[in-house]
Amino acid sequence: MTTTDIPRALAEGPSPARLGALTDALAARAEADDLLDVAVRTVESPVGELLLAATPVGLVRVAFAAEGHDAVLDDLARRVSPRVLRAPARLDRVARELDEYFDGHRTHFDVALDRRLSSGFRLAVLTHLSDVPYGRTESYAEVAAALDNPKAVRAVGSACATNPIPVVVPCHRVLRSDGSLGGYLGGLEAKTTLLRLEGAAA
């Protein structure tokens, strides 16, 4: 852009506050016009900054900082819709419930989920996980058995490792049969933090 030789008044941009207000207003209008395919916001938590994303159907993605939030946004643009906008309003309820959960005041999430990023056996695993209660754990083998597929222990592991909606869909409640942690896409430290919060692990 050639801005070096034009009067400063023309080259001057809007203040960050003004641009922020315009961007917020755009998100509100997009929502009203059914153009907000994916609303996103971030929240602070004891397991680091979380990116939340919701479609009009429900919560579609929760992402840890370790996953790289920019990469997650790119992935949402590709797999769901490029109409991705920062729009806190749609995610207010999820954010509030997460706060309550991390404060120890909530044991169950009561928000609509959009499970379109999962399919097949992985979807069955993740759907089952929503029935594992707060403060309890199951082993990968127990989950496989519960789904009438006792040999699919590794597949249960990979379903957990690719859970698009961690924390809210509690893949952290699945451990190895010997009680060791297994893996976690938010890192083992995050898994330990969540299990301790729920009083489920040392």
């Binding site: 080259a11 809007p14 643009a77 590709r78 920062r86």
Partner: peptide
């Protein structure tokens, strides 16, 4: 919707990157 690497960036990125220029115009 494209599944190749040449995909459209999330719209929020477009607003952040070009919002000021569009406003000047």
């Amino acid at each position: 919707m494209s599944t190749t690497d040449a995909a459209l960036p999330p719209f929020t990125e477009i607003v952040a990157r070009h919002g000021a220029t569009v406003w000047r115009v």
